[in-house]
Simulated assay, not measured.
Amino acid sequence: MKKRLFFNKYDDMKYISHLDLLRVMDRLLRRAGVPIKYSQGFHPRPKISLGNPISLGTEAFNEPMDIELREDMTNAELMEKLNSKSVLGFEFTKVIDIDGKTSIADEYKEMRYEITGDASSLDRLYELLSRDEILLVKEKKGKVETKDLKPRIKFFERKGDMINLVIENMSPNSLLNICEVAIKDVAIKRFCVEK
């Protein structure tokens, strides 16, 4: 039995890294008494699947996670059990049944971000987003690689002290680095764009 859970991660929980989030989920599922299925082998791991990693310091809302259960359980019962054992800054908002034929990464390529900050930081980011090309230059093993990030930007707009941004398979941190805006100078919220 496969389930897709949607959760919010905010306040101090935004400082939990992607790998730590998997550990938190494993512990939470065990504490809540959820009959999670484990992989076979020398080091059994819980059958948990997350989408694209959430950058450290980014609050995330409506974030999907897939799990596989050993025994059937209603969606309402599963959500109630998990939320009763959850920690402050972390909550489950919805549970649905899935057939498990597609992955989260395939289904949820686009994410919406709300970036707030001072006028100077947002001016630099908006100017970068308005360009025809957004080139990311990286050096890897002595080779210089240049990638245009513009095709990954699906939508952007500025409303006062906030930029709304929809991007595909990418963190806005790359964009902030290019326009030399310190990540500590902005607040980032990520929202899963449901299909």
Rank of each mutant, 00 (worst) to 15 (best):
M1W: 01
K2D: 14
K2V: 03
K3T: 09
K3P: 15
F7S: 03
N8G: 05
Y10A: 01
Y10R: 02
D12E: 01
D12Y: 09
M13Q: 13
Y15V: 01
S17G: 13
H18M: 05
D20F: 00
D20K: 11
D20R: 07
L22K: 15
R23A: 06
V24T: 12
V24N: 06
D26L: 00
R27E: 01
L28Q: 04
R30S: 07
R31G: 02
R31T: 07
V34N: 07
P35K: 14
P35E: 10
P35V: 15
K37C: 04
Y38S: 12
H43M: 04
K47A: 11
I48A: 04
I48S: 04
I48Y: 11
P53R: 13
I54R: 04
S55P: 03
G57Y: 05
T58W: 00
T58R: 01
E59R: 10
A60L: 06
N62C: 05
E63H: 00
M65Q: 03
D66T: 00
D66M: 02
R70T: 13
R70W: 02
D72C: 02
T74W: 07
T74L: 04
E77D: 15
M79H: 02
E80C: 02
E80L: 05
N83R: 03
S86E: 14
G89L: 03
F90P: 00
E91H: 00
T93G: 01
T93F: 06
D97N: 13
D97A: 08
I98P: 01
D99P: 13
K101D: 09
T102H: 14
T102W: 01
S103E: 13
A105Q: 08
A105W: 02
E107P: 00
E107C: 02
Y108F: 15
E110K: 10
E110W: 00
E114V: 10
E114C: 01
I115H: 09
T116Q: 14
G117P: 09
S120Q: 10
L122I: 10
L122G: 07
R124A: 14
R124P: 09
L125D: 06
D132K: 15
I134M: 06
L135G: 00
L136K: 14
V137Y: 00
V137A: 01
E139Q: 12
G142H: 13
G142Y: 14
E145I: 15
E145L: 08
E145A: 07
E145D: 09
K147M: 05
D148E: 02
K150M: 02
I153S: 06
I153R: 14
I153W: 02
I153F: 01
K154S: 05
K154M: 14
K154R: 15
G160Q: 14
G160S: 13
M162R: 15
I163F: 13
N164I: 10
L165H: 09
L165M: 06
L165T: 06
V166H: 05
V166W: 05
E168K: 15
N169C: 04
M170H: 02
P172E: 02
P172I: 04
P172Q: 09
S174F: 14
L175N: 06
L175K: 03
L176C: 03
L176P: 08
L176F: 00
V181Y: 04
I183T: 11
K184Y: 07
D185W: 08
D185M: 05
V186N: 09
V186F: 04
A187R: 14
A187H: 11
I188T: 05
K195F: 07
